[in-house]
Simulated scan of single mutants.
Amino acid sequence: MNNVFGRMQPIFEWITNLAALNITWLVFILPIAYLSVLLVLVENTSQVLMVLLTIVILSPFLLFPATTAMFGVVRKWFMKEEIKIVKSFWTFYKENYKRSLSGGLILSFLWLMGVVDYLYIKSDVSFVNYIVLFILAILFLYTLYFFSDTVHTESKLTQSLKNVLIITVANPIFSFGIVLICIFILYVSFTHLPFLIILFIGPFIAILGFYGYQKVFTTIINVQK
């Protein structure tokens, strides 16, 4: 019996750490989390746009710094460093706030344009819908890699945005696989397993995003040697 509990302990620790990180992240983005739920419930297009605009306005100040901090914690896990989750989260939050805010302003604007375009054309030609959805998927990947690059390198914002673009297109098949897994997790969480949203969804996406970034980043560095 003791052997069974001994083997299960690392699993319980991982579950606890994932839940602690996700809950910490949700606390920091609570207004956006509420608006995101509201976005799913509203049906009128004008109401959707109003809620969406509010999320976009708040995202650079709340979502981007908090998500960067979450990626910082995940990076430490990849480096196998022992950390205190809440303390480390707060440290990364403060250290990267200005950088995350600046990048968030740019990326939030791009997200707004992409989503608004999709909402206005979704009832028209289906082929165009797929193109816009594909662009949004690429933007999603780019955003994940931006968070990863912010906590992994010390390059300036403009250089980071260029580097992330290169990393995004460097291995499109592998990276797009990461996107599909993330989308699947989001779909299952919102449609079948809502408890994942409360406990695990943020770290799950961050782990996949940083894993993909690190693989492509390492490959590029090795090629340049």
Rank of each mutant, 00 (worst) to 15 (best):
F71V: 07
T68V: 13
A137T: 14
N96E: 13
V132Q: 10
L107N: 02
F134T: 09
S88Q: 09
S88N: 11
F134V: 04
V73A: 11
W77V: 03
A66G: 01
K84L: 14
L139E: 07
W111D: 07
L133W: 12
I131V: 12
Y93K: 01
M113W: 14
G114K: 00
S100A: 12
S102M: 07
E81M: 05
F140K: 01
M113T: 11
F61W: 14
S123C: 00
E81N: 01
L62M: 11
L107Y: 12
L133E: 11
L139N: 00
A137F: 14
R99V: 15
F92H: 13
P60E: 12
L119F: 13
F61D: 13
I131Q: 10
Y120T: 10
K98S: 12
G114V: 05
E82K: 08
V86S: 02
L110E: 10
V125R: 05
E81S: 00
Y130N: 08
I85F: 09
K94Y: 08
S100F: 13
K122D: 12
I131K: 08
F89Q: 03
S102V: 06
L133P: 04
T68N: 02
G103M: 11
S102T: 05
E81R: 09
V125A: 10
I138K: 13
S108K: 06
M113L: 10
S123Q: 12
S88C: 02
D124H: 14
W90K: 07
L139R: 04
L62T: 00
K80G: 09
L110N: 09
G72D: 02
L63M: 07
R75L: 10
L110H: 09
V73C: 13
M79A: 09
L139F: 09
S88D: 11
V115T: 06
F71Q: 03
I85H: 06
G104K: 05
W90Q: 04
K98C: 03
V115M: 07
K76A: 12
T67Q: 07
F71G: 02
S88G: 05
S102I: 06
V132A: 11
E95V: 03
V128N: 01
V74A: 07
D124M: 13
V125I: 14
K87N: 11
S123D: 13
I106C: 02
I135H: 07
V86K: 06
D124N: 12
I121S: 03
T67C: 09
K87V: 15
L107S: 06
V128M: 13
E81I: 12
I135S: 06
Y93D: 03
F89W: 04
W90G: 03
E95N: 14
F89G: 01
W90A: 13
L110R: 09
F109Q: 07
N96Y: 15
N96K: 12
I131F: 15
Y118R: 05
K87M: 11
E82P: 03
E82I: 03
D124P: 08
R99A: 06
I131S: 08
G104R: 05
L119V: 08
R75Y: 04
M70V: 11
V115C: 03
F71C: 00
V128E: 14
F61A: 11
S88M: 07
E82T: 04
Y93A: 03
S100I: 06
G72H: 11
F134H: 02
I121D: 08
S102Q: 05
E95S: 15
I121W: 15
G103N: 10
Y97R: 05
G104H: 04
K98Y: 10
A66Q: 02
D124L: 15
L139P: 01
K94N: 09
